[in-house]
């Protein structure tokens, strides 16, 4: 075990709080960019949880996974922002509920 105070519980609580904020944001906000940022927030909340568990268990697995998540998040940001720009150009709006063509 490493030295210093055990920050596992506070870190996990913070992670859960951030995740919850992200979820609520995704459901309540209409602007696509805000929704997108909330998704990023959820990802980072998960990252924090990974690091907290990693430290608690004394292994590197969680930290390695964080790098994967960061990589995916970067790619997702590039693609997601591109899609948002394309959507904005086509629709002149960023309201999530206006993108509803893909249905029966």
């Amino acid at each position: 075990m490493s030295a210093g105070a055990d920050l596992t519980t506070p870190a996990l609580l913070l992670s859960a709080g951030l995740f919850a904020i992200g979820v609520v944001g995704v459901f309540l906000r209409r602007n696509v960019i805000t929704v997108f940022m909330c998704v990023e927030l959820m990802l980072n909340a998960v990252n924090l949880a990974f690091i907290a568990f990693s430290r608690w268990r004394g292994t590197l697995d969680g930290q390695v996974l964080v790098f994967f998540v960061l990589t995916v998040a970067a790619a997702e940001a590039a693609v997601g922002l591109a899609i948002i720009i394309a959507a904005q150009r086509n629709r002149d709006t960023l309201d999530v509920d206006s993108f509803n063509l893909l249905k029966w």
Binding site: V23, F27, V96, F99, N100, L101, L102, K103
Partner: peptide
Amino acid sequence: VRVAQTGLVRAYALLIL
């Protein structure tokens, strides 16, 4: 069953959650 497919992204997200 096709009525479930509303086209509203947030509805899907809610289902996932």
